[in-house]
Nucleic acid binder design. Structure first.
Lengths: 157, 157
DNA sequence: CTATGGCTTCGAGTGCGCTCGAACGCAAAC
DNA sequence: GTTTGCGTTCGAGCGCACTCGAAGCCATAG
């Protein structure tokens, strides 16, 4: 399945409102390929706080080098990993699992199958969650539509 | 828009895998209309713990009467409200907002517009979340598909 | 008659993911 | 030369939503 297919499916599933170009670009664009970003730049790019970036580092999710002043220098690899990490966090993968995942990455190619297993399981978790939310959405829309009327399975509350 | 339309839309958005009849029934069926359920029965019905039901009551989300032994008796109204509450919780509405919502309900019909506003905002929140998850899903599927290869926007990690 | 099981209250504890504050270092701007 | 601003470390604190444990009451089963 090509990237385009995946994006097309994603867009179809999203429904009415068009996704911003921004969102699509973020999905497929590795972002600024410039080397050496500061913590503020990365925080801005990923829309997380600098506190959170330090926290992720403390938790062992990413290794960041320092410059002569002891300031963090995020190279392309660190930024790529953080893009991945924040994406996974956003979709609900727990810190614990991410920690395990990066351990596997650091352990080398032999762990690729296990990593794939994790990704597949996470994919299924996301799908389940989307399904749950879609049902809740339908229920909520139904409630909105019937509010003030008297018909409908739910009580009017 | 009819309930069927909503369900149809929901089912379409869900995609490949069929939703269980169970899920659809839960969405539209108020559930056992029998009066007077015990805490264990309600916990089982809603798939939450008895601890959680007591917690919701403590938080003022629902009022439950007692029998001669001091045991909780959940009447149809209480069960209906709890169905609503657990559905909203499942779709991510915070306890704080639910507390406010039930305050509005208890305050009478004059608060209907504000309640509708809350529901509409929540609906939009769910939609945003589905969109986020759909993008994360596409990214995850892409990563799975390209794992072990060398092409693609993400690094192979 | 006792034991089992389900319920009660109360308050404390847990897990997660940040989030913040204090105290400090360094450098470019005024 | 001091002020401003961005960075550092460390550890503590927080918000949320449960989750649990202890001690006790009552009824039905064996």
């Amino acid at each position: 399945m090509s990237t385009d297919d995946l994006l097309t499916r994603a867009l179809e599933a999203i429904g009415d409102d068009p996704v911003s170009f921004e969102a699509i670009r973020r999905l497929t664009d590795p972002g600024p390929t410039a080397e050496a970003m500061t913590i503020a730049e990365v925080a801005d790019l990923l829309d997380v706080s600098a506190h959170t970036l330090r926290y992720y580092e403390r938790e062992g999710l990413v290794t960041v080098t320092r410059d002569g002043l002891g300031h963090r220098v995020y190279d392309a690899a660190a930024v790529r990993r953080l893009v991945f990490l924040t994406r996974m966090r956003l979709s609900g993968m727990p810190m614990r699992d991410l920690a395990h995942y990066v351990d596997l990455v650091d352990a080398g190619d032999a762990t690729v199958p296990e990593r794939l297993d994790m990704l597949i399981e996470h994919r299924d978790t996301i799908r389940r969650r989307i399904r749950e939310l879609t049902l809740s959405l339908a229920a909520t829309e139904f409630k909105i539509a019937t509010y003030g009327g008297e018909a409908g399975p739910d009580s009017i509350e």
